[in-house]
Design a protein around this nucleic acid. Structure first.
Lengths: 335, 335
DNA sequence: TTGTAGGCGTTATCAG
DNA sequence: CTGATAACGCCTACAA
């Protein structure tokens, strides 16, 4: 592989001049510039990123961390993030941490080792409910800017882009109530930031409409179709009644739809169902699932925009909120 | 950030010794080793990857290229690849190219620029049907080893890990035939490597069972649920008859299931449906979808294993074949 | 406009 | 076992 000396020699100029051409310095005569470029082309020269990084201490790379990139929502996010970063001239280092705190810590350290220019943490599942367990993130933020996507954490160098999860759930719950539903089941999978926001929205809507919150109607469960299906069937068999289900994940909603069939309930007549994320799954069920769309694309684009703004020394708000939208399909019936 | 000189100074040894400790060289006395380690710990020392890369010309990083990491199959693959690479001590550079040839070329060049140690190209959609359009990959393989996951290309430094797509489709088609189906529709989305392999399997099964291949029953279409649904309904309305559908993607199969409902056909009685990839979608439909599982996890693990073997100078076969398995659910009825 | 020389932080090759 | 010292390839004052 040719280096800057080869180019220098071949084109009869010094390495400094070659370097200048490489970096588009204005103080190089057109003639020498063309000559050098020609030689570079001829020899198939590519600058060595290590050498460059060594001096500049940057490699135009952003680390993306998520718990599990095979989760449909996160997969989408990772995709859009990568696309947007590239558009801004940055490459992506991907890192899937799983759900254990110690792993998250290890990976974060590892990724910092790689001298990334910034960090994007995707998904609220990366944040621990206990605030002191997130100290390692604050520590990281003292080295490079950290963007949280769908999660909020306060600290210097930490920025968040989030959906209005609370508002979205509150709004849809309210619409269910207005359509006559009184016993609305709420299913969620994690006590994570957005999980709690959504729950908050649910409770707010009930309260605003004078409905007492029934603990039996709020269920924390793993994110699994079959499991949800059995749980709901079980609850129904044991006498619990509900006329709507709001879920924090589309997967739960799929389970709910299947359970309805088991229980002989018609959708949306006997039971209305709302999912979250508006993923591909929403189009696969029968009837098709009404779901809250959290605009991953916008969310990702905003995260990248904010991060690159920070790189350029601009000041940006610590928290940016994106509105989400309800996509109505066949599992609900309200205006 | 402390460097090797700081450690050297503080611990009273030369940088050479520090470096030896860093790399676990055996010829360092236990005493000095401990002393150095203590200082490193105290100062929170992290070796600079750029400097290291500069000398070694490697950063223990593998580039992962795929067309679209939000595709459920590719998302899974990316996830498992990342996990496995990390297990072997490699980091992942992710690159989503989209489907245009020129972009693929650009990204490949870009990723090589980053001095990755190897390349994994995921999904047959990265390969062009026209062989000379894949020259850029062969070119890349002259620099670093290239692993193709679910695609085959011959050339020095190019290795493939693939499923037996042909065999899997052939087998399931044969079972449909044995169960009495005669007019089996075959839907596929791309003339890519695995797309053609699957088609080949379909044709082989027909031939082996003395059924003439009807061109009308083979359809190339975009990978979209709604579109598939309408196409099938349209075909049916216009008089085409079929009693089974084999699809190259689960998404197509979802469309087929919905179309069956539109047409008033019962599944699996009037119509049996088989999908491909055994993705989450297969669990969302009603009835649940029988699908061919191509063992992404095994596939990914194998790809990484092979690549790291190559790194270590081992000789590995140019092509490794993984068997896939049929997961029977409710859209088929055969033994 | 161009060239010279020093530095970035490691690793590796020699001597001791 | 340990220490000097020369690469590795690029960037950038500073000089010319």
């Amino acid at each position: 592989m040719p280096n800057i000396y080869d180019i220098s020699e071949r084109s009869g100029v010094s390495i400094a001049t070659v370097s200048r051409v490489l970096n588009g310095s204005p103080k190089v005569s057109e003639a020498t510039k063309n000559k050098v470029l020609a030689v570079m082309d001829e020899l198939g020269y590519t600058p060595n990123v290590f050498a460059r990084g060594l001096g500049l201490n940057t490699m135009n790379t952003v680390g993306i961390m998520c718990s599990d990139s095979s989760d449909p929502f996160l997969a989408n996010a990772v995709y859009y993030l990568e696309q947007n970063l590239r558009k801004h001239g940055y490459d992506s280092f991907l890192c899937c941490t799983g759900y254990e705190l110690q792993n998250k810590k290890n990976y974060l350290e590892l990724i910092l080792t790689k001298r990334v220019d910034g960090l994007i943490l995707v998904g609220s599942s990366l944040l621990e409910p206990n605030d002191e367990d997130n100290l390692y993130i604050k520590e990281a933020a003292s080295h490079v800017p950290v963007m949280l996507m769908n999660g909020v954490l306060k600290g210097a160098g930490i920025y968040s882009v989030v959906c209005d999860d609370c508002g979205a759930v509150s709004s849809v719950t309210e619409r269910l109530i207005k359509s006559g539903r009184k016993r609305i089941l709420y299913l969620y999978t994690a006590e994570s930031g957005s999980g709690l926001q959504k729950l908050k929205g649910y409770k707010e809507a009930l309260k605003a409409n004078g409905i007492k919150c029934d603990k039996d109607l709020i269920r924390l469960l793993p994110c699994d179709i079959e499991n949800t299906r059995h749980l709901l069937s079980g609850l129904y068999t044991s006498g619990l009644r509900f006329d709507a289900v709001v879920c924090s994940e589309d997967r739960l909603a799929v389970g709910a739809i299947k359970a309805a069939k088991d229980m002989g309930l018609s959708i949306p007549g006997d039971l209305q169902v709302v999912g979250y994320n508006n993923s591909l799954l929403a189009l696969c069920t029968d009837p098709e699932l009404t779901s809250i769309d959290n605009h991953v694309e916008t969310l990702s684009a905003t995260a990248v925009k904010c991060l690159t703004d920070v790189f350029q020394g601009k000041r940006i708000p610590a928290k940016t909120i994106i509105q989400n939208a309800l996509v109505q399909r066949e599992t609900t019936r309200f205006q």
